[in-house]
């Protein structure tokens, strides 16, 4: 009786371990899910601060140099978060729930790095532009949008 229960249990555990490895490319499923949550939080912050700048660019809120600089500085800081702990290999669309990250992020690591550095550069330029005047902020919105689009076009999979 004891033996008949143990064997399926061991088999189930072994299968889980194998499946976990296959899914995670070395990282546990929990680690992958946590990394996805963390980088979504990063994107939320990118979106929030870009939204504050965009509302001024569209004329929905009045231009305020101090508030614009605060938003741009936060954006520039968030853009620089260490990618090695956020983009864990295996946290890819189709394998783990809740992400649209394409496998190209890891197969074309140099391209992804370049695209991500594009966001860092565009947000750093936004700090200067946001503190200058509304016209500079508006012009820099396009460069910022381009940097988002470049990365999303190449490395974000379709909605399902």
């Amino acid at each position: 009786m004891k033996r008949s229960l143990t064997l399926p249990l061991v088999a189930a555990l072994a299968l889980t371990a194998v499946a976990g490895t296959a899914i995670g490319d070395g990282h546990s499923n929990k680690a992958l899910e946590d990394a996805i949550k963390a980088r979504k939080a990063q994107m939320t912050l990118v979106g929030y601060n870009t939204g504050l700048l965009g509302a001024m660019a569209k004329g929905e809120t009045p231009y305020d140099a101090a508030a614009a600089t605060a938003a741009a500085s936060t954006l520039a800081a968030v853009a620089k978060l260490d990618r090695s702990i956020l983009w864990l290999e295996g946290s890819v669309q189709g394998t783990v729930e809740g992400t649209r990250a394409k496998a190209d992020i890891w197969t074309d690591a140099a391209g992804f790095e370049k695209a991500a550095a594009g966001l860092e550069a565009a947000s750093a330029d936004m700090v200067t532009a946001a503190g200058t005047d509304l016209a500079s902020l508006q012009a820099q919105m396009k460069a910022l949008g381009d940097s988002c689009g470049t990365c999303h076009k190449a490395y974000r999979g379709p909605k399902n």
């Binding site: 929030y48 965009g54 381009d146 689009g149 999303h152």
Partner: peptide, 17 residues
């Protein structure tokens, strides 16, 4: 102009082009 949606997501896929 910039590809930003009102939620400040950006255009993706073919629409980015």
């Amino acid at each position: 102009t910039s590809g930003f949606t009102p939620d400040y997501d950006s255009a993706g896929g073919e629409m980015a082009e």
